[in-house]
């Protein structure tokens, strides 16, 4: 195992995840990933005055996946929707102080989960945002992930 490669911040978020769980009456829920690949994320949001008023997450995945989703919820909670949708996995990874090289892929889905939640929120209020639409579940996201790993300046 590569426990030692996780920094303290990642371990802290894994051990004490922020905003874990579900919202009783969520305005929108985004779910991405696939248990087959070993990672699945769900982001629930409540929106008020164009801001993410409250947020919860649930993750099926490794420590890195859990820590990343936890950090993402902290980063975007209270944020204006237009800013939240611009948050990248790179931002989240930087907030976490980096991830072990082989774990970078686990952080990608968290941001996709948020985008999916935003997509469904906009849809609910009558705005079509195809750019935020979650990828088809059948689509193999591994290929993209590989490319991102190679390009990552943080690893």
């Amino acid at each position: 195992m590569d426990r030692l490669e996780y920094n303290d911040m990642v371990l802290e978020h894994f051990k004490n995840p922020r905003n874990a769980g579900t919202l009783e009456e969520a305005d929108a829920i985004g779910q991405v990933g696939n248990p087959v690949c070993g990672d699945m994320m769900e982001i629930s949001i409540n929106v008020k005055d164009d801001r993410i008023e409250d947020i919860r997450f649930r993750t099926f995945g490794c420590a890195s996946a859990i820590a990343t989703t936890s950090m993402l919820t902290e980063v975007v909670k209270g944020m204006r929707l237009e800013d939240a949708e611009k948050v990248t996995w790179d931002d989240v990874m930087k907030s976490l102080g980096g991830l072990p090289k082989i774990k970078v892929h686990c952080s990608l889905l968290a941001v996709d989960g948020l985008k999916a939640a935003l997509y469904y929120y906009y849809k609910k209020v009558g705005v079509d945002r195809p750019d935020l639409k979650p990828k088809d579940e059948d689509e193999d996201h591994h290929h993209d992930v590989e490319v991102n790993i190679q390009d990552s300046p943080l690893v």
């Binding site: 894994f14 099926f60 490794c62 420590a63």
Partner: peptide
């Protein structure tokens, strides 16, 4: 419903 590495880390 749970994933192996998370379990392993918490046990660790």
């Amino acid at each position: 419903y749970i994933e192996g590495e998370s379990m392993l880390m918490l046990l660790d």
